[in-house]
Write a protein that binds this DNA or RNA. Structure first.
Length: 162
DNA sequence: GCCAACGTTGGC
DNA sequence: GCCAACGTTGGC
């Protein structure tokens, strides 16, 4: 099982929206590197749900892959912001997956914590200039972030409650 | 709103 | 294939 991090602007689609809907088609990926990651996602893979452009940005919860990649319908929809006139129906350029809600963290994990935690060195989302909206996360990093989300900083050894 | 970083486009 | 211009992302 692989683990991933997916960004979403909470103003557009938040963890609360996913909790309400139960599951959703993950549409609108328009970056080849992110698309390639998306096509590698397997049923059962866990996904850290990251709020970008939030106040503050950070990891809000967990989703799971329910359905592997299929053509993103919005690429053929002229009324969609994601419409792509260059994508042919017999050779779809963009893909989507279906994600199911798993949990919303008791403790939102803000980007400042992701940056400062030595256990999370090398995490893609905190790399300067990182814009990739979907990328793999190591199992160790995933487990660490889930622990932070469930227990908060107080639950970790070597840290004082603040 | 600013701006750094990055991806894409298109002229050559 | 190079690279400047442009558009977008996303933290601050």
């Amino acid at each position: 099982m692989a683990t991933w991090l997916a960004k979403s602007e909470p103003e557009v689609y938040s963890i609360d929206d996913l909790a309400r809907d139960g599951a959703t088609g993950w549409e609108g990926i328009r970056n080849y590197q992110a698309r390639n990651h998306l096509r590698a996602m397997k049923v059962g893979d866990r996904v850290l749900f990251y709020h970008s452009n939030g106040e503050p940005p950070g990891v809000a919860g967990i989703a799971v892959v329910r359905k592997e990649h299929f053509p993103d319908p919005t690429q053929y929809d002229r009324d969609s912001a994601y419409f792509d006139a260059g994508s042919k129906p017999d050779d779809p350029r963009w893909s989507s997956v279906e994600l199911r809600f798993v949990e919303k963290f008791a403790h939102f994990v803000p980007i400042g914590v992701l940056r400062e935690d030595p256990a999370l060195d090398g995490l893609e989302v905190t790399r300067k200039g990182s814009r990739l909206s979907l990328h793999p996360v190591s199992e160790a990093h995933y487990n660490r972030i889930v622990a932070l989300g469930r227990d908060g900083l107080a639950g970790l050894t070597g840290r004082r409650e603040s």
